[in-house]
Design a protein around this nucleic acid. Structure first.
Lengths: 291, 291
DNA sequence: CATGATGTCTGACTTAAGTCAGCTAATGCG
DNA sequence: CGCATTAGCTGACTTAAGTCAGACATCATG
């Protein structure tokens, strides 16, 4: 660790703490203290359960209660008892609250957009922001199981195919590869996991089964911005856990020498190389793991 | 501006606001409120003039006064009247204050270092942080005149030469180029400007004169992380201003077709192409501007 | 149905941060 | 010198944020 690197990180911290507030001033400038604005924002983003909001924003129950009252008095939200448990309360926006929330969103979007517009190489800047955000927010990345035909999942898969096309000499064509059938990656036969970092998909993996004791791991992908923070490891662990819950006893996968990082990962996490088990034209190396 | 880009910026904002505090917790964790810690930090970094600190941290005079008293009562600083103006006060660290400041610095450095260590590609991460910080902090970049032999200036020049070596077919050797004599870029004959973003050098430019009415602009360089935010423009404006203050009437410069961005900048800011005026082997295009 | 746990609310408090007006002492300038 | 300006200090105030203890209703469980 050179002192130069540390100086650069600290410069980043100084600038970012000073400027990000200014960048996302949507919270300010509408005459509402930060606390209320944060709660309004959380409710606008679909969080309705009061306890859930409290946990997310890390607020004391007393403070939370007062903030809710203040928003209620402003006519922006209304709270009703939870239908299944009258101790809990559920908050939702009134029409006035929805308008106020939309105003915050607009402000925020315009400001975010303006920031990019003022740069000559917005794509590079955006990629850098993704990289930094992924590194900073690594522990906030959560795996979510979803339908592989979901638009979010599809976006991951497209990125995966595009990358293979570049990595493999001679390109890559999904239709030539084995069985891109989604049904095999949905319960009860299989599963598909997407890694989400604040709603942005940064990786995925699929478990493809036929209902038997053997299943395959497919479509392991990590977004370029999220590489180097151990996400592939986390995705594989998630895939194994999903497979176990599906009753799978043996997991297999095929891969290619063009993806050396992947092979290194498999070998270091209990996978052993086995002979070819399919006639797919793309893979050249095969692995197995007993759960 | 696609909605995807905006989502990504906002993800960055969310993560960064949540994590940077945690990243630079040096301010916290030592049982001192943020305000006092910031003041202590500013003094530790060499700011002694009370007014200067107040302006930098944007503090009310009353608040500032109280923060200083609190630090004084803790025995961390002492204040004395300014030797040249008894209305103003000067603050400095006591030995105890210096120790406390060092503790903050240590904490901060360890945390910054740990963040990089946890990433598989620290260089890339650092470059991304530089890029983002430069874009966010573009308006905080200040030009400072300094001796071209100063270590900070030298670092810029090394980077400049290294880049030319890559850009030019056949490389670049300073010794073959004309007159790398520093004295011509120091007042009263010339000037050398460095662009500083929070103490990090991100660009430079030199005005090389012989005491006459004609001078040359040399060594215009912008760090890769700071490109695309108009810094070259700012540096050239600074160079022209410095030249004017030196009594220069005509500025000249030589450049190369391998640097098309530079040529575009010159043409758009009042420079006109002129015939070759030296026998330096590297340049192939020549410009002039009457001040 | 008694009991303890849970979720929310309320009142009384603390702390940090900041604003504002008026004061004093030193300074610069005609 | 007189006078306006400047730098800093002080007291009285406000606001935001958060803590804590207790009250109260609801719920789960034996």
């Amino acid at each position: 660790m050179t002192s130069d690197a540390i100086a650069r990180i600290r410069r980043f911290n100084r600038i970012v703490t000073a400027e990000v507030g200014a960048l996302d001033t949507s919270f300010l400038g509408r005459g509402r203290p930060l606390g209320s604005a944060r709660v309004l924002n959380a409710i606008g983003h679909g969080q309705s359960d009061v306890t859930a909001i409290r946990e997310r924003l890390n607020l004391d129950s007393g403070l939370m209660s007062r903030l809710l009252r203040a928003l209620e008095e402003e006519g922006l939200i209304e709270t009703v008892p939870h239908p299944e448990d009258a101790r809990r309360r559920v908050a939702r926006l009134t029409p006035a609250g929805a308008a106020e929330f939309a105003a915050y969103e607009d402000l925020s979007n315009t400001q975010a957009g303006g920031f990019l517009d003022r740069h000559a190489r917005p794509d590079e800047l955006l990629a850098a922001m993704d990289l930094v955000a992924s590194a900073l927010g690594r522990h906030r990345i959560a795996l979510e199981e979803m339908d592989p035909r979901d638009p979010v999942a599809r976006a991951c898969l497209e990125a995966y195919y595009a990358e293979l096309a570049v990595r493999f000499e001679g390109g890559f064509d999904v239709k030539l590869s084995r069985d891109p059938d989604a049904a095999d990656m949905i319960r009860p036969r299989g599963a598909f996991l997407v890694a989400l970092s604040e709603e942005l998909a940064v990786g995925c993996v699929g478990v493809k089964g036929q209902g038997g004791a053997v299943a395959e791991v497919k479509r392991l992908w990590v977004s370029p911005a999220a590489r180097g923070i151990g996400l592939a490891h986390k995705l594989m662990a998630g895939a194994e856990e999903a497979a176990r819950s599906l009753g799978v006893e043996v997991l297999r996968l095929d891969t290619n020498k063009a993806l050396p990082e992947a092979q290194k990962l498999y070998r270091s996490t209990g996978w052993t190389e086995i002979p070819r088990f399919n006639d797919d034209p793309y893979p050249d190396t095969f692995f197995e793991k007993r759960l």
